[in-house]
Nucleic acid binder design. Structure first.
Lengths: 292, 292
DNA sequence: TTTGAATGGTAAGCTTTTCTTATCATATTA
DNA sequence: TAATATGATAAGAAAAGCTTACCATTCAAA
C-alpha cells in the first residue's frame, strides 16, 4: 500500500536542491553522480511522479517536488533530532535518574554527592525522595525509582544490592546522661535506662541486644519528635551514626561495641533489569565516591 | 557523527513491542526471525546500547528502549503521513490548482465547469481569478497561476497553448438599432455608426475590419460601463460571443461574417514545466469537456 | 558554426546490506 | 523429563546500493 521511503534518497534530493545540481550534490555527499541519479529515479518511481523536471539540462523541481521539499526536510530533521537525543542519552549527557534513599542518607550524604554528580553530568536530571528502608525497597521493586540507597531489608532475588558503606550503631542520649561520657558501650549497661524505640531499632534484632527492645515501652517514628524526647531527657535510643542528628548540641552519640552492630548501606536496583545510561552514570559515580 | 537510522529496523522494534516477541513480530512482518534479531542488534550498535534486555528469554525493553519507543513511533508515523499525503497528491485526491481566466470565460464557462470538476475531484482545491488576456499571460508566465484560459496573446516559446474553443466576433448594439435585425454583417455596413472600442477590439487587428478602429473615438474597458453606453444607444461595439452579456434584454449580438473573425480560447501553461497532479487533472477535465 | 565543458542519464559489474535456512543454547511448560 | 517455547549464531543467497566508464544534450565562448 504505502511505499517505504528511505531517508538517504531524501537527503540526496535535499542536497540536489541545496547544491543546485546532481553533480554538486554528489560531491557534497561523497557519492558518484550516478548514485544520486539512480536513487532519485527510484524515489520518483515510488512516489509515482517526478520530483525534478526532465529533459532540460538543469535540475529544477516540479510542482510536486516543491510540495515535497519542506516535508522531506522536516522528516529528515525529525530523524536527526531523535538520533542526537538518543545519542546524548547514551553518552550520559542527558536523561534522568529517580532515586530513593533512607532519610539519613538522603539528608546527610546525598546533598554533597548529588552536587558533585550534577557538576560532572550537567545534562542529567535527578529526583530524590526519602522513605524508610522498607519503602525504598518497595519503590525500587515497583519501578517507582530506578535506584535505592538503603540498608538491605528483605533480600530478594529480583533485587540486587551493592554495598556502599557501613554505618555503626550507637546509643544517643542527652549530654548530662550517665552514658554520655562513655566512648564504648556494652549492651548490658543500657538495661537500667528507658529506651525509646525508633524505625531503626530493628537493626538490633538478631543480636544479643535485641533483648533491650522487649523492655521498651515507647516507639517514636518521627525524627523530630524523637530528638525532642531525647533533649527532654525522657530516655535514650539507638541510632546508626549517620542518622544521629549532629545539629542538636545537647545530644551525644556513643558507639555500641558489644555487640558491635552496623547497618550496611548500599545501592539497590532491580536485578536482570538494565539501568538507564543516566542511572548507570549515577551508580558508577556513587561507587567511585563511597566505595573507594 | 550521527548514526543513520533506517526506518525498517524501527518498524521491527515496534512490531516486537506490539506483538510481544521476536518470533511474533517476524510472522507479522513476513520476515524470518533472524532477520529481526540481526536488524535489532545492528540498530542497538548504532545507538550504542541495547533496546531489549538480554539473557532472559522474553523480549522486554530496557529503560532506554522505553525512552525510544514513543519517538520511534512518532518518526515512523511521520514518515507514513508524508508518504500517504504524497500519494494522495499523485492520485489526484488532494492538491490545489490556481487558474486565471479571461473575464468572459471566468464568468460564463468556469462556474459549471468547476462545479463538475469539484464533483469528480472532491479533494482538490481551486482558485480562479480573472484578468484580461495580457494579464492572464503574465500570471502564467510568472507562476502566479499554473493554468490560464485565454485567447492567445503573445505567442511565447516558454508558454504552451492548447486550443479549447472558438469564439466568433460580432457586433453588439441596442435592439432598436438598424443593425439589430441583421443576421450577418459585412464590416462595411458598420462604417456609418459610432463604434465604441473595448478590450477585445484588438481582435479586429490584422483583418480588413481593423480600419473601423481608426475612426473610433471612444474606448471603454469596463464591461459594466460598456453595456451602459450600449443600452443608452451611444454607439455599437464588437465583442466575442462569449463576452456578450446576455442578461441585458435590449442588447443584440450580430455575428460579423465578412471578415469572419474569431478568438481562439485555450489553455495556457508554462512549457517545459510539468504540472502539479491537480493541474494535470484539471487540464484533462477541461479538454474532455470542451474539446470533444 | 564549432568546440569544449557543463549538464544528467544508462549499463555492467563490484560491494555492502539484508534476508533465509539451518542450527544452537536456554528457559518455560506439560 | 520431554516438548515447546524463547532468541542468538553462522553460512550462503538475494537484493540494494555504489562505482567506473560511457553516452546524449545543452550552453557558452572561440
Amino acid at each position: 500500500m504505502l511505499p517505504e521511503l528511505k531517508l538517504t534518497p531524501l537527503r540526496y534530493v535535499l542536497a540536489i536542491i541545496d547544491e543546485g545540481g546532481f553533480h554538486a550534490a554528489a560531491k557534497q555527499l561523497h557519492r558518484s553522480q550516478p548514485a544520486i541519479s539512480m536513487a532519485v529515479r527510484d524515489l520518483e518511481e515510488r512516489l509515482g511522479q517526478p520530483l525534478f523536471e526532465k529533459g532540460n539540462g538543469k535540475a529544477m523541481l516540479t510542482p510536486f517536488g516543491h510540495w515535497c521539499e519542506p516535508r522531506f526536510r522536516e522528516l529528515v530533521a525529525h530523524h536527526d533530532r531523535v538520533c542526537s537525543d538518543a545519542l546524548a542519552i547514551t553518552r550520559q549527557q542527558r536523561g534522568r535518574v529517580d532515586i530513593a534513599a533512607v532519610p539519613s542518607v538522603a539528608s546527610r550524604l546525598m546533598p554533597t554527592l548529588l552536587a558533585g554528580f550534577l557538576a560532572s553530568y550537567p545534562g542529567i536530571g535527578i529526583s530524590l525522595q526519602d522513605g524508610h528502608s522498607e519503602r525504598v525497597n518497595e519503590m525500587v521493586l515497583k519501578g517507582e525509582v530506578e535506584l535505592g540507597i538503603t540498608s538491605l531489608w528483605m533480600p530478594d532475588d529480583t533485587l540486587s544490592f551493592t554495598e556502599l558503606l557501613h554505618d555503626d550503631i550507637g546509643v544517643v542520649c542527652r549530654d548530662d546522661h550517665p552514658l554520655a561520657q562513655q566512648t564504648a558501650l556494652h549492651w548490658h549497661t543500657l538495661k537500667p535506662y528507658p529506651l525509646i524505640c525508633n524505625g531503626t531499632s530493628r537493626l538490633l534484632e538478631g543480636s544479643p541486644a535485641a533483648e533491650l527492645l522487649t523492655h521498651s515501652t515507647l516507639y517514636i517514628s518521627n525524627m523530630i519528635s524523637l530528638t525532642a524526647m531525647l533533649e527532654a531527657g525522657v530516655g535514650i535510643t539507638t541510632l546508626p551514626r549517620l542518622a544521629f542528628p549532629e545539629e542538636y548540641e545537647r545530644l551525644r552519640f556513643v558507639p555500641l561495641t558489644s555487640p558491635y552492630l552496623e547497618r550496611r548501606i548500599g545501592l539497590l536496583k532491580r536485578a536482570e533489569r538494565s539501568l538507564s545510561p543516566a542511572a548507570e552514570a549515577m551508580c558508577a559515580y556513587l561507587l567511585r565516591q563511597l566505595n573507594h
